[in-house]
């Protein structure tokens, strides 16, 4: 597996985790927990954004792995 695919896989996992936490956040009865999950979501989203920048960089450096 090339570095590019590895990074992309992690990116996918991150998005999956984000979606799961979002569902929990919608269902959870306790407002405090809801807020905590919201914070986690914001943090995760920031990481996802940063990682997508990295993916673009990798693709520019190594054109043959393009396709995301």
């Amino acid at each position: 597996m090339t570095v590019a695919t590895q990074v992309k896989q992690t990116y996918g996992n991150l998005k999956g985790a984000l979606a799961t936490i979002q569902t929990y956040q919608l269902h959870h009865p306790n407002p405090e927990t809801k807020r905590l999950m919201e914070e986690c979501n914001t943090d995760l989203q920031a990481i996802i954004d940063a990682l997508s920048i990295r993916i673009k960089e990798i693709e520019q450096e190594e054109q043959q792995f393009k396709g995301f």
């Binding site: 570095v3 590895q6 896989q9 992690t10 996992n13 991150l14 985790a17 799961t20």
Partner: peptide, 13 residues
């Protein structure tokens, strides 16, 4: 498990 795996991935990267 996913979150733990992501953490490990980042350390590897």
């Amino acid at each position: 498990a996913t979150l733990n795996k992501i953490e490990a991935d980042f350390i590897t990267f």
